[in-house]
Amino acid sequence: MLGQQIINGLVAGSAYALFALGLTLMFGVLGVVNLTYGFYFAVGAYLALLAAGAGAPIALALPLAAILAGLVAVVLDFLLLTRLRRTRAPELASLMVTLGATLFLYSAMSALLGSEIRRFPAGLLDNGAFALGAYRISVGQILIVGTAVLLSLGLVSLMGATRTGLAMRALAENSDASELMGVDTQAIMRRVSFLSGALGGAAGVLIGLEYNAIAPYMGEAMTLKGFAIIILGGLGNIGGALAAGLLVGVLEALTAGYVSSVYKEAVGFLLLVLTLWVRPQGLFGRPGARRA
C-alpha cells in the first residue's frame, strides 16, 4: 500500500504544485497576494467544460481555457490593482481588494451557474490505467504530474534564460529601479498577470478532469492550501512551490493511509504554522526575505 499511497500523494501534490506555480509567480514578481487567483482556476475549468461540451477535444479545450483565463487575469489585475499601485498603497490593501473581488466573483458565479458540481463529458480523457506491478496510474494522473513538472521547468528557464525573465526578476527585486533602467514595467506586469492566470486556468482544467468535479467554489479551498504551499516553498520561489506542493501531497496521503484521514486536511496548515515559527522565509526561501 505504501507505494500506491506515495503515488496518490505525488499526484495530489502535483495538482497543488500546478496550482501554486502561478500564485507564487504573481506574488514573487508583482508583490501582490492576489486572492482572485482561485477564480482563474475555476474560470479555466468552466471554459474547458464549455469547449468540451461544444465538442472540442482536450488538446484544444485546455490551451483555449488557459489563454482565456490569462486574459481574464489581465483585465481583473487592471481593474483592481492599477489604482493601488499608482497610489503606492500598502500590500494589505491589495490583499483586501482581491479578497472582496473574490467574494464577489465566486458568489456571482454560483448565482449565475448554480453551485452544483459539474463534470466533463465521459470519454474526454482516456479512462485507462497502467498497471505498474501492483500499482495503478491513470492517464489523467500522468497528465497532471507531467504538466506540473514541465511547466515548472519551463517557468524556471523562462525566468533564468530570457530577456522577459530577466526583466521579471528585476521587477521582483525593485520595480522603481527597473523602471529607471528602461524596463517597460507595465508591459511586464501584464505578461506576468497573463502567465499566472493561464497557469491557474490550466491547473483548473487538469484538476477538474482528474477528480471530475467542477464547482464555482473549487478555487477557494485550493487557494487556502495554495497559500500554505507558497509560504512553505518560500514566497516567489518556483522550485520551492513545486517541492512544497509535492511534500504536502505526499504527507497528506501518508497521513490518510497510516494515521487517519481525519487529519489529512490539517496537514498543510500545521506545516505552515510550524514553518512560520521556525523558518518564516519558507523551507526553500532565502533567509531574511520579506521581513517587515
Binding site: L95, L224, F227, L272, V273, L276, R291, A292
Partner: peptide, 13 residues
C-alpha cells in the same frame, strides 16, 4: 515580526 501578509495568511490557517 514579519510583513502584514503573514498575519493574514496565518489567521486563515
Amino acid at each position: 515580526r514579519l510583513s502584514g501578509v503573514y498575519l493574514a495568511l496565518a489567521t486563515v490557517s
